[in-house]
């Protein structure tokens, strides 16, 4: 559905924000686009939507070159890209009015977007008076008016309450299930891990890691992750060769520590610490991401 072929771009002649980047995305896939600030994620989104013209390479959507305003491609910017002094319904009516639709179809799409974003009860409220979570929902709902085949979401759940986050993620899953391809950029890696079917990590304008989420997170090594209620004493950590991931989360390489999983749990229980949230055979996205960046920077 979306195909980026050897894409290069620079804002100035001697700069290169995107370098020889290729990427494919199929209908229904959710691509988690990760990378540190300045990696080129926003520039890449600009190239996909047609705001920016590539210096070299091609962007194709449904086998046709992408141009700005191409129907079927919708963008949800990180900023609240609507009018705070307008009511929720007025905002949606305005954006729907820009689409070449019949009056009946406009009404239908507004109602559907309100329903999908959970805003039906708030149609009469001024957008500027909504809470942060509902503002995010409205930002998202405006993109739904386009019935997009490709949806680009830039930090769609930044600074929102858990309830609104869950609703937005549910709506994203529903869109994906209905066949919409989604590019999801976020610094909230737990969220990306929960929703993305594909992961791409960007660094210095290039994709340095790309694969399905399930494959990237599967781990054939002997590492065990677990949490405890209290921080473990340093001598115990030393004895069991534990690496502290945060104050109450630890990583143990069983092979390196010459322990079996049963021996590790027994040793912890004898020291008065029951391990919880124990995971074995799977890595967290955060770990994959940080390792990838560390490796990229070390080899650069």
């Amino acid at each position: 559905m979306l195909s980026l072929d050897r894409l290069s771009f620079g804002y100035r002649p001697h700069e290169q924000q995107i370098a020889d980047l290729s990427l494919d995305l199929e209908a229904g896939e959710v691509l988690g686009l990760l990378g540190p600030n300045g990696a080129g994620k926003t520039t890449l989104v600009g190239l996909i939507t047609g705001q920016l013209r590539p210096r070299a390479g091609h962007v194709h959507f449904d086998r046709a070159p992408v141009r700005l305003g191409r129907p079927g491609i919708a963008l949800v910017p990180q900023e609240y890209a609507f009018y705070p002094r307008l009511k929720v319904r007025e905002n949606l009516a305005y954006f729907a009015g820009l689409l070449a639709l019949s009056a009946a179809e406009r009404r239908h799409r507004i109602a559907a977007a309100l329903d999908q974003a959970g805003l039906t009860e708030l149609v009469g409220r001024r957008a500027g008076d909504l809470s942060g979570g509902y503002k995010r929902r409205l930002n998202f709902a405006i993109a739904l008016l386009q019935k997009p085949q490709l949806l680009l979401l830039d930090e769609p759940t930044a600074n929102v309450d858990p309830h609104s986050r869950q609703d937005i993620l549910t709506a994203v899953r529903e869109l994906s299930a209905a066949g919409t391809a989604i590019i999801y950029t976020s610094h909230l890696l737990d969220e990306v891990e929960a929703i993305a079917t594909q992961i791409a990590v960007m660094h210095a304008g290039q994709i340095v890691l790309r694969g399905s989420t399930a494959k990237l997170l599967s781990d054939a090594s002997s590492q065990v992750r677990f949490s405890t209620e209290q921080p473990l004493p340093p001598p115990l950590c030393q004895q069991l060769q534990l690496e502290s991931l945060d104050s109450q989360t630890y990583l143990c390489d069983l092979q390196k520590a010459s322990l079996s999983l049963a021996e590790l749990t027994r040793a912890l229980e004898q020291a008065g610490h029951s391990p919880s949230r124990l995971s074995y055979g799977q890595r967290r996205l955060e770990e994959v991401y940080l390792q990838c960046l560390a490796h990229t920077e070390a080899t650069a």
Binding site: I73, E79, F95
Partner: peptide, 14 residues
């Protein structure tokens, strides 16, 4: 422009 509403309008084909 700052709120990127302008970009959103442009991607809508306006």
């Amino acid at each position: 422009r700052q709120q990127r509403t302008f970009i959103r309008l442009r991607t809508l084909g306006t």
